[in-house]
Nucleic acid binder design. Structure first.
Length: 839
RNA sequence: GCCGGAGUGGCGGAACUGGCAGACGCGCACGGUUCAGGGCCGUGUAUCGUAAGAUGUGAGGGUUCGACUCCCUCCUCCGGCACCA
C-alpha cells in the first residue's frame, strides 16, 4: 500500500479528539508546561504560512513535552477586536461581530484540518462579552489606582484611519497600518501610566529568558537615562535674575563647555519671559512655523533651525558666564525638562547648531590618548572653525577650573555634588525615560467600550463592577464622525447615562480600547477558561472577581514557560502585557507567590518570504496558502517542510519545489517501514541500533534548542542508513523510531504504530531515552595532517599509546610521501581527533 | 548616525569547545526502469585541472601546529531605534 496521507490523517485526528489526548489537566501532580503562541487575529484572509511556522514549531514541542511526562497546556484563542474587521464593516456593511464569527470559524476549521494538539476546551475570544467583562474590570482597577487618567494631549493622528495612535504604532512618522503620514492633533484621551512601571519593566528583563534582540528593543524603547537637572538663572536687559530655566543633561562633566541654552519651541518659560524678549514677534512667528513643521512631521536633522531670545541671557552656575538663549525645534518639549545646555564641542547636535548660528566653542574634554599636559591657561572662546566634529567620548577635563585633569566619569559625580552642596539647590540628580504613557483610547467602534461615565459633579466615574460587562451596542453605521469621534458618539441612548455615584445625568465615554487590550491578560484566562460557561454573559463569579475565583489554577499554570511571538510585538504587546501583568500582580489579582513576570522564555519565529526572497503579499500574488499545501501533499508534509526549511528564528524564503522533498522523505519512511513491519521479529543490527540512539539524542536536544531543521536532517540521515543497510529494526526499536518521528509527523507515526500492531496511540507513549554508549560516534577516525592539511585517516581500535599512533601515522604511505626529505619539527597529538605532523 | 544579527556551492542551509568545510534537502547532469511525459531507482554534483594536485567559508591583515569558528581594519545585507540632551 502506498503512502496516502489524505486517507489517514483525518482518522488519527479523530482518534486524538475522542481520547482527549491533548487536554491539559488542572492542578495535576505531573510537572506542568505552559506553551503559548500569540493568539491569532482572525482576519478574513485565513491562516497563512507564517502562522503555521510558529504553530507547528510549538506543536512539536508540545507533543514531545507530553511524551516526556509533562502536563502540557497548549491553548488557542482569538484576538478578535480590531481595525481590519471594522474597516471591512465600513466597506461592506457587514457587522464586525458577524464577520468575526465567520473568520473565527474559518480559522478554526483550518487549524482542525492541520491537526494541532491544542486543548480546544479553553478557547477564548476577546470580543466575547464574557471575556471583555474582565478586560473592562482591569481598566476600572487601573483607574481606581490612579493609573488610568484622561488627558488632553497632542496625539498622533492618522487622517486616513481617523484614529489616534500610540507612539509605538507610528513607524517613521507614518501610520503603522495604512502608511499615511501621521499628524498631531489635540484630543482628550485615556492614558495608562506605564511610565510608572518603567524601572521595573527594565530591571525585570534580567529575570527572563528572552532573545537578546528582544531585550534590547525593550531597553531602547524604555530609554532610561540618568543625569542631572540644573537651574540656569535668566537675566533680563535690566540685569534682573528673577527667572530661571531647568535643563536636563547626562553630561554634567561638560558644564564648563556650555556656550548657549536651547529651549523647545513649546517651552512654558517663553510665556513668562514674553515682556523681556525684544524680538518677541519673530520668536512667536518661529514658534508657529515650528508647530507647522511638527504637525507635518518633517523635522529634518540637517536643517538646524532656531531663533535667539534677544534681551535675555542665561547664567552658567558653574562659572557665572552669561550665555545666549535660543529656541530651536531640535529640542523636544516631550522629553526631559524641554530645555538643554548647548555644548558644541562635545555634542554633535549642539555642534551643528553652533556652527550654523556662529556661536562660540570651548573644549572641555580631551580624549585620554591625546592628553599630554594640562593647558596652562584656558582660552574660553574658541572659534568653531578649528573643529570638524564634536568629541562625545570620555577623557580628561580641561578648561574647567578646579576640575581640570579629572577623568570625565569622575567629574560627572564631582561637579554634580559641588553644584548641589557649595552653591545651593541648583542641581539635582534626575532620571528620564523615552517611554511615554500609553494612549488607551480609540475613537472607534469595534473594541471594548471603556466603562467610564463623565458626571459634572463627580468628574470621571467608573461603572460599578457588578454592572460589567458594558456591552457594545448594535449599530448600523460604523464610520467615525468627521470630528474623529467614535460612531458610538452618534447614539444618544449610548451617550446619555446616569452617574453611578450621585445619580445625576451624565455622559458616557464613547471611545473604545485599543486592539492591545484583550491580549493584556489572555495568558491568564487560559488557566481556567474551560471552567466558565460562555452562554450567559452576565454570569457572576462566587468570589469577588474571576482572578480570585480561579486563583489556584492561575497559580498552577503561570508563568508561561515558553512564549512564542513575532518580533513586531517586542515593544507593543510584549511590553504592554508585561505591564498589565505586573499591575495585576501588585493588586494581587495574580497570586503573589508567582513572580513579577508572566513569561519565562520568549522566542520569535523568522518571517516567511515568498519565492525569490521577496515579501509575501497579496498584491504580489505570491501568497502561499498552507491549506492548499496540506491538501495536496498532506499535513505531515507541510509540517516536515516548514520545520526543515531553515533555522526557526531566521527569515526564510518559501520554496514549493522543496516541499516535494519533505513528501519524498515521508514516502521513503512509509516504504521502509512497511517492509520492516514484516521483520519485526528480526534482531536490530548493531550499526543501525547505534544510529538510532544517536538520532534519539540529537532530536531530544534539538527540539529543546529550537533546531528543528537539524533534527529533521538527522531523521533523514537515519532513514537513509536504515534503508541502505537493508537490515531491520525489531519491534521495540521500530516503536522508538515512530516515537521520535511523531512530534514532527504525528499522523504517519500513528498509522504505522497501528500497522505494526502496537497498542494505544503513539501520541501518548513515553519519550525514548538514548543509551549513552550506543549513542557514541560510530568509530574513532584519527585525522592525519601534515602542516595542518588533511592527508590521510587512520582507523583506531582499542587502546593504543600516543607514541605507537605517531609511529603508525608516519608509516602510512600517504603521510611519508609528504614528510620524506624533510625534518619533522613537531608532532601535535589530539587524543581521539588527529595527529598533525609539522615539517 | 547609534545598537543588534548575518555574509559558506546554482538554491535553502550544516559544521560540537579552534581539529575531515559543504551534512541533509532542493535543483541540475548522466544512466536505469518494456521508459510518451511525469514518477520512481542509481550515480555524480564547490572551483581550476586529463591527472597528481592546487585553491576555497564577504575583502584584507593577525594569532595558532591548525581558523567558517578567536583578534584587528574594512565592505555588504537584514532588523531595531532615531534630534531623547
Amino acid at each position: 500500500m502506498n503512502y496516502n496521507p489524505q486517507g489517514i490523517e483525518f482518522k488519527w485526528q479523530e482518534a486524538w479528539d475522542k481520547n482527549q489526548v491533548f487536554k491539559a489537566e488542572d492542578l495535576s501532580k505531573k510537572p506542568k508546561f505552559y506553551l503559548l503562541f500569540e493568539f491569532p487575529y482572525a482576519s478574513g484572509a485565513g491562516l497563512h504560512v507564517g502562522h503555521c511556522r510558529s504553530f507547528i514549531a510549538l506543536d512539536v514541542v508540545a507533543r514531545k513535552k507530553r511524551m516526556e511526562g509533562f502536563n502540557v497546556l497548549f491553548p488557542i484563542g482569538w484576538d478578535s477586536f480590531g481595525l481590519p474587521t471594522e474597516n471591512y464593516a465600513i466597506k461592506t456593511g457587514i457587522h464586525p461581530a458577524a464577520a468575526t464569527q465567520q473568520n473565527t470559524e474559518n480559522f478554526k476549521k483550518q487549524l482542525k484540518f492541520l491537526g494541532f494538539s491544542f486543548d480546544w476546551s479553553r478557547e477564548i475570544n476577546t470580543s466575547d462579552p464574557v471575556y471583555y467583562k474582565w478586560t473592562q474590570w482591569i481598566f476600572v482597577q487601573l483607574f481606581k489606582k490612579g493609573l488610568a487618567y484622561k488627558a488632553k494631549i497632542p496625539i498622533n493622528w492618522c487622517p486616513s484611519c481617523k484614529i489616534g495612535l500610540a507612539n509605538e504604532e507610528v513607524i517613521a512618522g507614518n501610520c503603522e497600518r495604512c502608511g499615511t503620514k501621521v499628524v498631531q492633533k489635540e484630543r482628550e484621551q485615556w492614558m495608562l501610566k506605564i511610565t510608572k512601571y518603567a524601572d521595573r519593566l527594565l530591571e525585570d528583563l534580567e529575570k527572563v529568558d528572552y532573545p537578546e534582540r528582544v531585550k534590547l528593543a525593550q531597553k531602547e524603547w524604555i530609554g532610561k537615562s540618568e543625569g542631572w537637572v540644573i537651574k540656569f538663572k535668566i537675566k533680563n536687559a535690566k540685569g534682573k535674575t528673577d527667572n530661571e530655566v531647568e535643563i536636563f543633561t547626562t553630561r554634567i562633566d561638560t558644564l564648563f563647555g556650555v556656550t548657549f541654552l536651547v529651549l523647545a519651541p513649546e517651552h512654558s518659560a517663553i510665556e513668562k519671559l514674553k515682556t523681556q524678549i525684544s524680538n518677541i514677534k519673530a520668536v512667536e512667528q518661529y514658534i508657529g512655523s515650528a508647530q507647522m513643521k511638527a504637525a507635518k512631521n518633517n523635522q529634518g536633522k540637517d536643517a538646524r533651525s532656531g531663533i535667539e531670545l534677544r534681551g535675555v541671557t542665561a547664567i552658567n552656575p558653574a562659572n557665572n558666564r552669561e550665555i545666549p538663549v535660543f529656541l530651536a525645534d531640535y529640542v523636544s518639549s516631550q522629553y526631559g525638562t524641554g530645555a538643554i545646555m548647548g555644548v558644541p564641542c562635545h555634542d554633535q547636535r549642539d555642534f551643528d547648531f553652533a556652527k550654523q548660528k556662529n556661536l562660540p566653542f570651548v573644549e572641555v574634554i580631551e580624549p585620554y590618548q591625546a592628553h599630554k599636559t594640562l593647558p596652562q591657561k584656558a582660552p574660553w572662546i574658541v572659534s568653531g572653525g578649528q573643529f570638524e566634529s564634536a568629541y562625545e567620548g570620555e577623557g580628561f577635563l580641561i578648561n574647567s577650573e578646579r576640575f581640570d585633569g579629572l577623568p570625565s566619569f569622575a567629574a560627572r559625580v564631582r561637579i554634580g555634588e559641588w553644584l548641589q552642596k557649595k552653591i545651593g539647590k541648583i542641581a539635582e540628580k534626575a532620571t528620564y525615560y523615552k517611554l511615554r504613557d500609553w494612549i488607551f483610547s480609540r475613537q472607534r467602534y469595534w473594541g471594548e467600550p471603556i466603562p467610564m461615565v463623565y458626571c459634572k459633579n463627580c468628574n470621571w466615574v467608573p461603572l460599578k463592577e457588578s454592572d460589567l460587562p458594558l456591552e457594545l451596542p448594535d449599530i448600523k453605521e460604523y464610520k467615525p464622525t468627521d470630528e474623529g469621534d467614535s460612531p458610538l458618539a452618534k447614539i444618544k441612548g449610548w451617550v446619555n447615562a446616569i452617574c453611578p455615584k450621585c445619580g445625576a445625568v451624565a455622559r458616557r465615554e464613547t471611545d473604545v480600547m485599543p486592539n492591545w487590550a484583550g491580549s493584556n491578560w489572555y495568558y491568564l484566562a487560559f488557566a481556567f477558561w474551560h471552567k466558565l460557561g460562555t452562554q450567559n454573559s452576565k454570569r457572576k463569579t462566587q468570589k469577588e472577581n474571576i482572578f480570585e475565583q480561579y486563583e489556584k489554577e492561575i497559580a498552577y499554570w503561570l508563568p508561561v514557560d515558553w512564549y512564542n511571538g513575532g518580533m513586531e510585538h517586542a515593544t507593543l504587546h510584549l511590553l504592554y502585557s508585561r505591564f498589565i501583568y505586573k499591575f495585576l500582580w501588585d493588586i494581587e489579582a495574580v497570586p503573589k507567590l508567582l513572580g513579577p513576570e508572566p513569561y519565562k522564555k520568549r522566542t520569535s519565529h523568522g518571517i516567511i518570504l515568498g519565492e525569490g526572497s521577496v515579501k509575501m503579499s497579496k498584491s504580489k500574488g505570491n501568497v502561499i496558502d498552507p491549506l492548499e499545501i496540506a491538501k495536496e501533499f498532506g499535513v505531515d508534509t507541510l509540517r516536515i517542510y516548514q520545520m526543515f526549511m531553515g533555522p526557526y528564528e531566521q527569515m526564510i524564503p518559501w520554496d514549493t519545489k522543496s516541499v516535494k522533498g519533505a513528501r519524498r522523505f515521508l514516502e521513503k519512511i512509509w516504504n521502509v517501514a512497511e517492509k520492516n513491519i514484516e521483520h519485526l521479529k528480526d534482531k536490530t543490527a548493531l550499526s543501525i541500533e547505534k544510529a538510532l540512539h544517536r538520532t534519539i539524542k540529537k532530536i531530544t536536544e534539538d527540539i529543546d534548542n529550537l533546531k528543528f531543521n537539524t533534527a529533521i536532517s538527522s531523521l533523514m540521515e537515519f532513514c537513509n542508513s536504515w534503508k541502505d543497510s537493508g537490515s531491520y529494526l525489531n519491534k521495540k526499536d521500530f516503536g522508538v523510531f515512530l516515537k521520535i518521528l511523531s512530534p514532527f509527523a504525528p499522523h504517519i507515526s500513528e498509522a504505522l504504530w497501528e500497522k505494526a500492531g502496537f497498542e494505544g496511540l503513539c501520541a501518548v507513549q513515553l519519550w525514548p531515552k538514548y543509551n549513552k554508549v550506543l549513542a557514541q560516534p560510530e568509530s574513532t577516525m584519527l585525522i592525519l595532517q601534515v602542516n595542518g592539511k588533511m592527508r590521510d585517516k587512520l582507523e583506531t581500535v582499542g587502546d593504543i599509546s600516543e607514541e605507537e599512533l605517531k609511529e603508525m601515522a608516519l608509516a602510512r604511505e600517504k603521510i611519508s610521501k609528504w614528510v620524506r626529505g624533510q625534518t619533522v619539527r613537531r608532532v601535535v597529538f589530539v587524543p581521539g581527533k588527529l595527529i598533525n605532523i609539522v615539517v
